[in-house]
Design a binder for these strands. Structure first.
Lengths: 334, 334
DNA sequence: TTGAAAGCGCTAACAG
DNA sequence: CTGTTAGCGCTTTCAA
């Protein structure tokens, strides 16, 4: 049994519009009547119907957030950053996870648009085929901001990490530690961040004269399981590099498991560094040297960008965050 | 500029209701006209307005999910389980995180109800004061299912883990390993799971004649930071038990950090077990013995329960999952 | 200060 | 097979 504005109007012998005004703090209701209305609404357990309000006013106070993987702590912290700016100004977050699946991405995006969200924060699935849907969203006038990843040629605001300079720090550090052969575990081949990180490593290695054999470039499929499988293959190679760069936190977890299983010693048997920090980087023995992103900061900025888009100009703005280097003990000095 | 059903009706010189029928696959439209309508809708980039549909039909195909902490992997996996049953039947998830804050909980619940979600899956904030709001929700006719935690005296379906038998396994294992003094790091004092786990430990210890001094019961505040602080205090105690039970995964992380910092050896200096498994339990040296819950399973069941509530009877059903014991190497045989 | 009426976009019952 | 009409719950003119 839902209570509507009419029910409470009838009970008080007034008109629905009066109730509406009273409840919304609009002028034009006597103080005492307003008080009575508010009291009764409270007592009857009235809850406004946002679908009706959304329909009438065309706004819902809801921001859609599209994340690829809810179980990756990175995105959890991003969301936390978003909440920090959005919640205080009365917005709610509608989280959708795509599980890196383009179909789910499209479906979620459609739902969000259909839901009349007032804006969308998206970390697009790294597959390439989603340009059209994002273009459509952008054209339909729904403010859109990308975070962590972008879709090339879609002209919206975004905030990402400087992947190339991040991996460059990693490579340089390995170089200075005496490493001249490096392997890299990559994200899924089509992934935006994956390409950036791989190319960054390759470029830096070339400049420094570091050898990266083809068989040392292994696909960890962005996931723990993929990282596990790739690490298995990698460690059974007969000619191995002295160091391995792992392109994200989840895959590092897979690598760690293989290392524990096989009894390998880090950094004696292999030096390890990763893109992304994580709890397990700190906990592992030895703790893992890495470049860390700042997910909460990223979420904060993304939300701010979106708010700007909603309230002010529609100019697109691009923010590139620096990853910062954290030295721990997973790299051998040669 | 949004496209409505009318726009496309006008363009084709037909009536809006015809367009509606065509788009929804309802009978009563000639095949060719339907085809034409669908084509045009596609071409014009028509997106149905769910707020309008929701208003008209009174249903939104949205399930609200309330989780206390999005950065806890436990809940991430729960959500994954929910998605597995809900997505295939056309439901979308509206995730809200309460951050263990009762105010945010109330606010989120109101929004969900106002949004006309068709059901709510909630892991209530462990504070006690939320009974009224949940009662209101339940009475308002919105199907509601609790998972992981419950609110006492609110009569709705739920799925939780058998905390008491879980900790009993832990205590028994410690006992068999020769431990006669045990400490416990508890969740926040008011928390449902926290109480259950603490009481379970105390009860089992009493039965077995294990000593638990008051100063060995330390509050880890459910979080990593809290666990860190509590562990600091604990390890500086002059009389310590031989084993410590940590009541959840996040606090264990804090404990691990203290152990790394202080150079303590597990299990030589202290034996460690935890409620909840986690990635870091496996990665730590030595790997941590624990009882593991099955979050994905829990999410699956919760969603199924909710679906039953929505479509069939309104009978409440209670499911209690067993935690399963995982032996690793963090406990010394004395 | 309050009421009456129109309408947001859509669907469903009823006509034709 | 297609059109007309009414109405979901709310806000917002316009009148009174």
């Amino acid at each position: 049994m839902k209570i509507t504005i009419k029910d409470i109007a009838k009970k008080l012998g007034v008109n629905a519009s009066t109730v509406s005004r009273a409840l919304n703090g609009k002028p034009g209701v006597s103080a005492q009547l307003r008080e009575k209305i508010i009291q009764l609404a409270e007592k009857m357990g009235y809850l406004p119907d946002l679908t009706a309000m959304g329909l009438k006013k065309g706004q819902t106070k809801i921001i859609g957030v599209l994340i690829p993987d809810i179980s990756n702590p990175f995105f959890a912290y991003t969301v936390r950053g978003m909440e920090k700016v959005l919640r205080p100004i009365g917005y709610h977050l509608l989280l959708c996870s795509t599980n890196e699946d383009p179909d789910q991405e499209v479906e979620n995006l459609r739902t969000l648009a259909s839901q009349k969200v007032e804006g969308i924060l998206a970390a697009p699935v790294d597959s390439g085929g989603n340009r059209t849907i994002y273009k459509k969203i952008a054209e339909s006038g729904i403010p859109l901001v990308f975070f962590d990843r972008i879709v090339p040629n879609v002209d919206v605001s975004y905030v990402i990490t400087d992947n190339e300079s991040g991996v460059r720090e990693l490579v340089t550090y390995l170089y200075k530690s005496g490493h001249r052969t490096i392997g890299i575990m990559t994200l899924r081949a089509r992934s935006f961040t994956g390409k950036e990180r791989l190319n960054g490593v390759l470029k830096a290695c070339k400049e420094l004269g570091i050898t990266v054999q083809n068989e040392w470039i292994i696909d960890g499929e962005s996931s723990e399981e993929g990282g596990y499988r790739a690490a298995k293959r990698f460690f059974s190679l007969c000619r191995k590099p002295t160091a391995l760069i792992v392109s994200n936190n989840l895959m590092m977890l897979g690598v760690m498991k293989v290392i524990k299983e096989t009894g390998l010693k880090v950094p004696q048997d292999i030096s390890l560094v990763s893109f992304d920090d994580s709890h397990w980087n700190e906990i592992f023995e030895p703790p893992i040297t890495c470049v860390a992103q700042e997910p909460e900061q990223m979420g904060l900025i993304a939300a701010t960008l979106l708010i700007n888009n909603i309230f002010h100009d529609k100019k697109t703005s691009r923010t590139v965050l620096k990853a910062h280097f954290i030295e721990r003990q997973s790299v051998a000095k040669i």
